[in-house]
Design a protein around this nucleic acid. Structure first.
Length: 215
DNA sequence: ATCCCGAGGG
DNA sequence: CCCTCTGGAT
């Protein structure tokens, strides 16, 4: 585990690598961002962005999606994967937004998580990217990167990763840090074949010593 | 712990 | 072919 000073140094280097890190899901409204984020579970942003234009052309808002035919929704999002569960979840989510939330997205993590298909990670993404409410969504990239860089212990749960990052990073930087760690994980510190040879933070990494000893 | 589930990369 | 992708619900 790194000291707080090194921890901060690592994050600063990653910030330099990806000064423009940002959410990559395409949407016109907070509602569409919510739907896109639900669809993004265990799927790539690219894949979601390919399907959502068709989906939102027919169902741009909660009112239209709430009365959609499930089979039609399934056909429009099939390429994303997990499509049966996701179709059911997004239609039900639209219905609940109408019946339980007055047609508006709640600006609240616990209320958002009452929507089917919305867990802690999705709620954090929507709050941060649609409403600018500080939070750190821990996805597969953030978890993997945080562990490789020893920002947290290997056995840490996603909740522990989130808590640790929030403790060390100033609140105003939470959303940006989240995006930077995602970019770092997606484009550099990839799950398979990470680009260790050209990695500026290798000295801080769990793989660093191993690599220097081998080659 | 397990299921859901297709696309793309290596 | 096998692994991974901004997880969530049971």
């Amino acid at each position: 585990m790194l000291s707080k000073a090194k921890f901060t140094a690592v994050l600063a280097i990653i910030a330099g690598m990806f000064p423009n890190a940002h959410g990559e899901l395409e949407s016109d409204t907070p509602f569409q961002l919510l739907i896109a984020t639900i669809l993004s579970a265990q799927a790539t942003d690219k894949g979601v962005n390919k399907a959502t234009p068709k989906l939102f052309a027919s169902y741009p808002d909660a009112e239209t999606l709430a009365i959609a035919d499930i089979a039609d929704v399934e056909s429009k999002i099939r390429t994303i994967g997990l499509y049966k569960t996701k179709a059911k979840n997004i239609v039900r989510t639209a219905q609940m937004l109408i019946t339980d939330f007055g047609g508006e997205l709640p600006h609240d993590k616990d209320l958002l998580q009452k929507l089917p298909g919305v867990g802690r990670k999705t709620a954090n993404v929507v709050l941060g990217d649609a409403f600018g409410i500080p939070g750190i969504a821990v996805d597969t990239h953030v978890e993997r990167v945080s562990k490789r860089l020893q920002l947290v212990k290997q056995s840490a749960t996603v909740l522990e990763v989130e808590d640790k990052l929030m403790k060390v990073v100033p609140e105003k930087d939470w959303v940006e840090t989240h995006h930077r760690l995602i970019f770092f994980g997606r484009y550099h510190c990839t799950a398979r074949n990470p680009k260790c040879q050209t990695c500026p933070v290798l000295p801080y990494c769990k793989f660093g010593e191993k690599l220097t000893h081998e080659s």
